[in-house]
Amino acid sequence: MKELENQMLAFNPYGGRMSEISKFAKPFPHRSGNIAKIQYEVNWEDLSDEAENRYLNFTRLMYDYMTPFVSKNPREAFLNYRDLDIGINSHGRNAYTEGMVYGHKYFKETNYKRLVSVKTKVDPDNFFRNEQSIPTLSS
């Protein structure tokens, strides 16, 4: 962290009562077995594209450096800290497969499938969508 400028890691502790809630009870599955959630942050004041690329790259380097110390298969992520680097969805023909890339990280496989099923029922036209939203199944 000393080598990278303006880096910050924030650890949100997990465990305790939170671990008692089943990963299938709610879309947020990252409870039991996780010590903490890590937030990666970098701040800068220079508004140039060069500075933006430089500091975002610093965050990517820190993220890569932390790989041996975090969850695996898949590396988990928290939806409220959206990260477009872990995947985006064009909402085309391959929407379900594209969504799996980030969906398994945010929700785990079983919850992702369940959320896709619900989304297909309540929003079949996929009106409510963004780069990482739950896709719908084609009819």
Rank of each mutant, 00 (worst) to 15 (best):
A51H: 06
R60P: 04
F128C: 07
D49P: 04
Q39R: 03
E98N: 08
S139V: 07
K23P: 14
S48G: 05
R75E: 08
S48E: 04
E98Q: 13
G92H: 11
P27L: 07
H30S: 03
M62N: 09
G33L: 11
Y106S: 05
M66Q: 01
L137I: 12
N89R: 01
V118L: 13
F127Q: 01
K26E: 13
D85E: 14
Y65F: 10
I88M: 15
P29Q: 02
N53I: 06
P124Y: 09
T120N: 00
F78W: 06
Y106W: 13
K113F: 05
T120L: 06
Q132S: 09
N57S: 15
Y112G: 07
S117I: 00
K113L: 13
G92I: 15
E41V: 14
K113Q: 06
Y112M: 06
V116D: 00
G99Q: 06
E109Q: 07
F107P: 01
F69D: 01
W44K: 08
E50R: 12
I86M: 07
Q39Y: 06
L137R: 09
F69I: 07
R17P: 12
F128I: 12
N80F: 00
H104K: 10
T110W: 06
P68D: 08
G87R: 01
I21E: 04
A77W: 06
L56H: 10
N57V: 02
D123M: 04
